[in-house]
């Protein structure tokens, strides 16, 4: 199985035996650091600028969200959302300060489920994906299919709800926020591809001859070798847990267990409800007075997004470290 990758390289270096070439390349690397890798300066500048423009387009809405969060509510109602608001205000953040207990609690819940969930998730997915990536595993195609099939056919909302609440009894527990997101067929398949590509049997064979158990091989050889892949899955999983609000909507009634994004979505949904049911507010103005306004919602977006977005470089470290691993592989 690992041979298919080598085949593709043969076309590049058909004139010389592969091994020799590799060794030669490695020598050069030691002498000269990586400038073989560099783009032509002009090309580099062009692409830097192009990607820069796209990045600005990506970040801009976020800046815009920050601006709205600093716009006075009155100004939003009168003029809508503006790039440069007619009237600035920090009311939104003052509102958040007033509900800081709930916010801090939600932060705690989010961080807890993200950390615990990601760890469990990465372990379970790696085990599963590694096993189905090994040619020795007789039933690998069946288990690949078993995972893949769930990507297309799901049980639907109500049956899943029954399993989680009535069968597993997880309603209003922290596990209801963690377990339903632990596995994901998409990640399994990606991880399988990573393992197939970056962990060749030849490396493992020598370890096996030395008498290492498969578990030891997994943790001591496979895991470090596939760090970029694992970092990817960990990142996806982290993002998944951090951004998740739907499981909380379904399984959590207790305000103490509501994660941050769910809190944000609640505000969004409540604002929507309020707009559609103006007559409810007519009877009892105070009900909707205590609901946050648009600007507060944006302020929530800011504080819910910023921490996770700036934690991305942490994962990047592992992508970069993959570079060096590639070098020491042989």
């Amino acid at each position: 199985m690992p041979n298919d990758l080598n085949q593709t390289q043969v076309s590049v270096v058909a004139s010389q035996p592969l091994d020799q070439l590799k060794r030669g390349g490695a020598k050069i690397k030691r002498k000269k650091t990586r400038d073989y890798h560099e783009l032509h300066p002009v090309v580099n500048t062009i692409f830097s600028v192009l990607l820069g423009i796209f990045t600005i387009m990506c970040v801009f809405p976020f800046i815009y969200v920050i601006i709205i969060s600093l716009t006075s509510e009155e100004s939003i109602v009168r003029n809508g959302f503006q790039i440069i608001p007619a009237e600035w205000s920090t009311d939104a953040y003052r509102y958040l300060w007033n509900v800081k207990d709930q916010l801090l609690g939600s932060y705690g819940v989010t961080i807890l489920i993200t950390v615990v969930g990601t760890v469990i998730s990465v372990l379970m997915i790696s085990f599963y994906a590694y096993a189905i990536s090994r040619p020795q595993f007789k039933y690998r195609r069946f288990f690949t299919f078993l995972a893949f099939f769930t990507m297309l056919f799901s049980g639907g909302l109500v049956p899943t709800y029954i399993v989680v609440t009535q069968f597993l009894g997880l309603k209003n527990t922290i596990w209801a926020l963690i377990l339903p997101l632990v596995m994901n067929a998409f990640y399994i398949i990606i991880m399988r591809t990573f393992f197939m590509k970056s962990v060749s049997e030849s490396i493992l064979e020598s370890a096996r001859i030395d008498g290492a158990s498969e578990w030891r091989i997994f943790f001591q050889i496979v895991f470090p070798l596939s760090l970029p892949g694992i970092a990817t899955i960990a990142l996806f999983s982290t993002l998944g847990y951090w951004n998740d609000w739907f499981t909380a909507l379904l399984y959590i009634d207790d305000p103490k267990l509501v994660p941050l994004q769910a809190l944000l979505m609640k505000i969004e949904a409540n604002l929507e409800f309020m707009k559609q049911n103006v007559d409810v507010g007519l009877m009892q103005q105070s009900l909707f007075d205590t609901l946050p306004q648009d600007s507060a919602k944006m302020a929530m977006v800011v504080i819910a997004t910023l921490p996770i977005a700036v934690s991305y470089p942490f994962f990047q470290k592992y992508f970069i470290s993959g570079l060096t691993i590639g070098g020491v592989k042989e």
């Binding site: 709800y161 609440t165 379904l250 979505m265 949904a269 409540n270 604002l271 409800f273 309020m274 609901l291």
Partner: peptide
């Protein structure tokens, strides 16, 4: 008494009812 938030109500109550909770 368990209150369910305004915006969550429609979806959540429907799931609970269909699930025969």
């Amino acid at each position: 008494m368990q209150q369910i938030d305004w915006g969550d109500w429609a979806q959540k109550s429907q799931v609970m009812i269909n699930a025969g909770e």
